Amino acid sequence: MRVVELLGAKDIRQIATALSVRPTKTLGQNFVIDANTVRRIADAARLTDEDVVVEVGPGLGSLTLALLPRCARLHAVEIDGRLAGALRPTVEARAPREAAKLTVHHVDAMTVAATEFDVMPTALVANLPYNVAVPVVLHMLAVLPELRRGLVMVQAEVAERMTAGPGSKIYGVPSAKLAWYASCRRAGSVPRGVFWPVPNVDSGLVAFERREPPSGDRKKVFEVIDAAFAQRRKILRGALAGWAGGMDAAERVLTAAGIDPRLRGEALDIAEFARIAAHREAA
């Protein structure tokens, strides 16, 4: 693996000044300015030289430079036009021997389709905007079937929710829906001081590995999850009443699925949500 000179705090600010870029809360822009943190994230991604990486929100290129020597190709998805336009010149200046691996997509990650890519990504590595982190990961897993694993940096509280399991007070819609696609785990913490501007919260790393989903229709299973957690303090018999067509109907579906109607949604794993959806279809 070739060694690349990574960006430091001074470099980040110089590039931002040259582009007249001021990080915005609207786009969730907090740039990592510590090279050691970037290197640690790249190491934790466990990439191989055959991986095709999709990086969402590359910003000024800190993580991009660390990832390029570790993979076969890198697709950078950036919604900010100024940042998208400046990424290739930054890579060509800092890592000219890696620049041919880079493809920049000036597009909203939430609208990305598989047709964007000439070679399908196998790994997602990203410093995700806090306000769209979970939707972006779910969207990427849905539209990129060859995406096998990933490592994302998100708000620490979001990392806890993404990796929570059944029975936890913070287990909910993000945890359950991610479990449809992948197993998730915490992969480390990131202090707020390594960002510019400094956010009001700490961050966490979440790693995931894709696995086979339960049998059933994903959309219908997700409808059950949404209904179960819309009023999470209710037992399932009541929480699923609107979805099933009444409390009696909900109880019949739950009983047929082998689920105690007195449980709450936070007690169920993804396979149990799938069984509920399947038994409603069979009813």
Results as ranks from 00 to 15, higher is better:
Val4Trp: 00
Val4Met: 02
Leu6His: 05
Leu6Ile: 09
Ala9Gln: 10
Ile12Cys: 15
Ala18Tyr: 00
Ala18Gln: 14
Val21Cys: 02
Thr24Met: 00
Leu27Glu: 09
Phe31His: 04
Phe31Tyr: 13
Val32Leu: 15
Val32Ser: 06
Ile33Trp: 00
Ile33Gln: 01
Ala35Leu: 08
Ala35Tyr: 06
Thr37Gly: 00
Val38Glu: 02
Arg39Ala: 14
Arg40Ser: 13
Asp43Pro: 02
Asp49Ile: 00
Val53Gln: 10
Leu60Ile: 15
Gly61Cys: 09
Ser62Cys: 03
Cys71Ile: 09
Cys71Ser: 13
Arg73Lys: 15
Glu78His: 10
Glu78Cys: 06
Leu87Cys: 05
Pro89Asp: 00
Ala93Thr: 12
Ala93Cys: 05
Ala100Cys: 08
Ala100Ser: 14
Leu102Pro: 04
Ala113Pro: 00
Glu116Pro: 00
Met120Gly: 10
Ala123Asp: 07
Asn127Val: 09
Pro129Glu: 09
Ala133Cys: 07
Val134Thr: 15
Val136Ala: 11
Val137Gln: 13
Leu138Pro: 01
Leu141Asn: 03
Ala142Leu: 11
Val143Arg: 12
Leu144Phe: 11
Pro145Phe: 10
Glu146Ala: 15
Leu147Met: 13
Val152Ala: 12
Met153Asn: 08
Met153Trp: 08
Val154Ser: 10
Val154Trp: 08
Gln155Cys: 10
Gln155Lys: 11
Gln155Asp: 12
Glu157Lys: 04
Gly165Ile: 09
Gly165Lys: 15
Ser168Lys: 09
Ile170Asn: 14
Gly172Ser: 05
Ala176Cys: 13
Arg185Ile: 04
Arg186Pro: 03
Ser189Glu: 15
Ser189Asp: 14
Pro191Phe: 10
Arg192Tyr: 07
Trp196Ser: 08
Val206Glu: 09
Phe208Gly: 01
Arg211Glu: 06
Pro214Leu: 11
Arg218Ala: 12
Val221Ile: 15
Phe222Gln: 04
Glu223Arg: 13
Val224Asp: 02
Phe229Lys: 07
Arg232Glu: 01
Arg237Lys: 13
Gly238Asp: 05
Ala239Val: 11
Ala241His: 05
Trp243Asn: 00
Trp243Tyr: 14
Gly245Ser: 06
Glu251Cys: 12
Glu251Pro: 06
Asp260Arg: 06
Leu263Trp: 05
Arg264Gly: 03
Ala267Gly: 03
Leu268Gln: 05
Asp269His: 05
Arg275Asp: 02
Ile276Ala: 00
Ala278Trp: 06
His279Gly: 01
